[in-house]
Design a protein around this nucleic acid. Structure first.
Lengths: 208, 208
DNA sequence: TCCTGTGAAATCTTTCACAGCT
DNA sequence: AGCTGTGAAAGATTTCACAGGA
């Protein structure tokens, strides 16, 4: 049994890639897959796939493979995606729009309930979600019991916004502002810096 | 001297975070910084900072610290950001707009020269860049000698677009489409899947 | 004394090899 | 025979400890 061994962070990240691949296989009407074929599809080693899963339990059948429907359920449970999480997004520019209107989040069980922006022109009902002025943050986050905040404001505002989100009850933050937020340890922070991603590419390009 | 030892991938990623922090310190009129203060700011260990830098050379002064201007130059050179790279972006939706209009890329030396989209309504001159129909890809990529492609099309189109980019001379791809591209080994690919980032957050949230 | 640079130790992650079920 | 699950080996990364320059 996959008991109290520490699970590598990388394993969790791969798990969500596995989930995406499972959905693809299910669309293709597959029902069972071996770690060999699964891994080949993702261009990783079958050992790694099996090891990753073994941290959490025994999900396959020896001599057979993995039931895709069952595995999907298990991974969703591991990642906490067997329920719906409510999120809000602060700073409703192009990036926020791209995120809010992307179906992938809702499919994964993350429901972006509300947007917030200081700019009056952006405060409107987009159908799938409504964008409010910042002063509504407290009320709506508490009312809806929102636990996830997505920050897409300019870097000058980000720290202040993060502090307010936490004050109102948010427990996890996905931060797109290009700076390191200074927040209490119990808050879960994930930084995504698009320009740092590109900067790594150029290092490798240099040597071509 | 930081000779032929293999540099961890994580080191390169951190290097671009270091660069961002250096710019912040320079704005604050700092000139010299010790690994201790630098690391504290980024909430990593000073050992790690020094080790990361030591892969590439000796950039500090014993008993003193690092000159920020000098260090900035060195890291820019390591990452290949001491020159300008030309890039293009395919699929000009909200995400592409967010990326194209974000100043951070240009500051880092990455110049997004052109956009491409099938939708006529999106094909226009946005001042900072022009968006063309897909059939212009070949001409413009070759003419401008573009080496970096950014893919922000729906996942159904992504593989086809990636193949075309490479055919026309692109050597590195930043892929935002939620699938694993199947491309020859010599192409540098960086996948950024926003929904996978969030899925990791929920795993930790579950246990709160 | 203060701080860097780096070999060596400790830790973490991936890969391997094979026992054991179908 | 085919495939999973997992302890152990191999490999990679991070942390430590201290030599040596300012």
């Amino acid at each position: 049994m996959g008991n109290k061994k520490k699970v590598p962070d990388q394993t969790l990240i791969r798990l969500s890639y596995y989930l995406r691949a499972i959905n693809y296989f299910l669309d293709e009407k597959k029902e069972i897959i071996s770690s060999k074929d699964f891994a080949k599809f993702l261009r990783i080693s079958p050992h790694q796939l099996r090891k990753d899963l073994s941290y959490f339990g025994q999900f396959g059948r020896k001599g057979v493979g993995y039931s895709l429907v069952f595995l999907k359920n298990q991974i969703q449970t591991i990642l906490g995606l067997d329920r719906t999480w409510k999120a809000c997004i602060v700073g409703f520019g192009n990036l926020a729009k791209a995120i809010s209107f992307y179906k992938g989040f809702r499919e994964q069980g993350i429901d972006i309930k509300a947007g917030f922006d200081i700019d009056k022109k952006r405060q409107k009902d987009y159908g799938i979600l409504k964008v409010f002025p910042l002063k509504k943050m407290s009320t709506i986050i508490k009312q809806e019991n929102i636990k996830i905040g997505i920050i897409t404001v300019p870097k000058e505002e980000a720290q202040k916004i993060a502090e307010r989100l936490i004050l109102y009850g948010v427990k996890a933050i996905l931060n797109f502002a290009p700076l390191k937020l200074n927040l209490p340890g119990e808050v879960i922070i994930k930084d995504v810096d698009l320009s740092c991603q590109l900067a790594c590419l150029t290092h490798y390009l240099k040597n071509i």
